[in-house]
Amino acid sequence: MITQTQSPIIEIAARGLAPFIQLLGIYVFFHGHYGPGGGFQGGVLLAAGVLLLRMSMGSVHSQAHVSSKKTVALCALGAFIFAATGIIAILGGGEFMDYHYLPVPFLEGPDLRYYGILFVELGITMAVMTGLVAIYDDVLGIGHAGTN
């Protein structure tokens, strides 16, 4: 029962608002070190921007923004980034998620930990955002039939 709405008010408002929601999501993602926020919350905000477009413009017209075919693959890639960072730290000689042992050149001590956490958060954000969009698409049956 989701079709492209004939009302220009809803469509224009959603199209104008979605980039700001996603900008806020990126801000929350990068602000996770210093205050409330982090990968999961940033990913949920990014997914909210996509889902707003999915609901207001219809599932066919919003494919150009985030395609339904790529969501599951990107979700798997995000989970892989998260797990691989931890396992590479084990291979480097430390424990799981011990960023100090990541084999990255030109980075030492606190810097290495900072960027290690940021990389893991990037994986979480990617997995959460595309996972939520994939759940929405799957519930509506968008990816299978190719239409609404």
Binding site: T5, S7, I9, I10, A13, A14, L17, F20
Partner: peptide, 16 residues
């Protein structure tokens, strides 16, 4: 500003 932007649109969508 965001509340002023979104609330009327939500009401419009609901009653439409």
């Amino acid at each position: 500003a965001f509340v002023a932007l979104t609330a009327p649109v939500a009401a419009h969508a609901l009653s439409r």
